[in-house]
Amino acid sequence: MDWSPVLISLKTAGLSIFVTFFLGIFSAWAVIRMERPVWKAACDGILTLPLVLPPTVAGFFLLYLFGVKGPVGKFFVDFFGVKIAFSWPATVLAAVTMSFPLMYRSARGAFEQVDPDLIAAARTLGMGEWEIFRKVILANAVPGVVSGGVLAFARGLGEFGATSMIAGNIAGKTRTLPMAVYSEVAAGNMDTAWAYVAVIIAVALVSIMVMNGAAWKAGGGRRRGK
């Protein structure tokens, strides 16, 4: 069995959850702070879009933007000499795009659940907005934020549609686990496909346990009861 899809998948899912996690949290904070309802709704719509679009359509847009001739892709080629489409970073790009809405929406929901009086109290006590975000909003939204992280990680690990559009299925380069499963099945190698499936299930289970543990420790464990 070729282990490269496992490595590629772990690298991709790892880096993309790192990016998505912070990007999602900050976007959620930025959106809840918006005062104009029209802007708020517009931003929310755009940030949620990849969740409702078919992954291939999202991938189509990514290809349009980041392809060698696309506006962003051309910029990268011209200024950095880097081709994004059909390279390993493209797998990260696809995973981030597809998992971002899950992180953003979970974080936003968790932030909005924080009692507004806590925020008002923090303001009257002279705490700055950034300090309030860290110590009051985020700290009291840990369980929701972490569960958003779990969902986003799982989504990133399982990403197939958008990846196949923008990153392709190049063995040893952009072939992630879901891609590998697809390729092996297409080639009739059911046994190898089974092996990849087993790895995916194992990784998914472990990551969920790790993150649930983190959520329990940070959120509920220490301040419930006596």
Binding site: D115, D117, L118, A122, K135, A139, N140
Partner: peptide
């Protein structure tokens, strides 16, 4: 409801 920070 006093609005004490439950995480602190």
């Amino acid at each position: 409801n006093y609005a004490l920070f439950p995480n602190m």
